[in-house]
């Protein structure tokens, strides 16, 4: 990467160099949460608008093979094609968080994720936090602290807290508030959501006891 200085000089004149195309791009060192690595020489995948793409989604540990239009969001596929209505639709524009799911353990908005892009990723929805009919620790904490009212934003709130705790098992108050700040609640249950998140951290750490 010793070309930097040279290229920087050119850059200041807005110059273009063929040198370095491909060879010098890319960071390379840190990589690959995606799980799907395809050789650079492999042909790109092409789906025309009038076609459906055959994809396999890994949702809550289960594989779902299906046909999707390229434009279908993960949210639409989860709810309307797979019946996983624990993931809610609020705005379909990344502004409310009701559709929050975990993708490779990280909270994301399913409304701004194309289903076709979710292929090969590990997707966890609210249903995936259950063990059979038993609630997961974050869900239990939400019940204990009445961390919801109408309950419609709740699945997204729970997934955001779940994602927060997977990354940071012992969050501070400030970290909890920040972690919950990508999910709107019009009923205004935020304060109880913070308490529930704190309680869930305890439950996950195996510390039961009274809330």
């Amino acid at each position: 990467m010793g070309k930097d200085s040279d290229e920087n000089d050119r850059a200041s004149h807005g110059g273009v160099t063929r040198r370095g195309f491909i060879a010098s791009v890319g960071v390379g060192a840190v990589v690959a949460a995606t799980g799907v690595t395809t050789a650079e020489t492999a042909e790109p995948q092409v789906v025309k608008p009038e076609e459906m793409a055959k994809i396999t989604l890994l949702i809550n540990g289960r594989k779902h093979r299906m046909l999707v239009e390229p434009r279908w969001s993960l949210l639409y596929v989860l709810r309307e094609k797979l019946g996983l209505t624990g993931t809610k639709v609020g705005c379909e524009r990344g502004e409310c968080g009701a559709c929050t799911v975990l993708v490779n353990g990280v909270p994301r908005y399913a409304c701004l994720t194309l289903a076709i892009e979710a292929e090969g990723q590990e997707i966890t929805t609210l249903e995936g936090l259950m063990s059979g009919e038993e609630l997961g620790p974050v869900q239990v904490a939400f019940v204990e602290h009445d961390a919801f009212q109408c309950g419609y934003c709740t699945p997204g709130q729970i997934m955001a807290v779940e994602g927060l705790l997977r990354k940071n098992p012992h969050p501070s108050d400030a970290e909890i508030r920040l972690g919950a700040s990508g999910n709107l609640c019009r009923c205004g249950a935020y304060l109880n959501i913070f308490k529930a998140a704190d309680r869930a951290a305890h439950l996950k750490a195996g510390k039961g006891g009274k809330p």
């Binding site: 209505t85 624990g86 809610k88 249903e127 019940v143 309950g151 709740t154 699945p155």
Partner: peptide, 21 residues
Amino acid sequence: LPRVDAYQRVSGSAIYPSDVS
């Protein structure tokens, strides 16, 4: 007391009208 329908609301088993299919 926690809500009688708390389980449904946190488990996703509550069927809201927009969930009906």
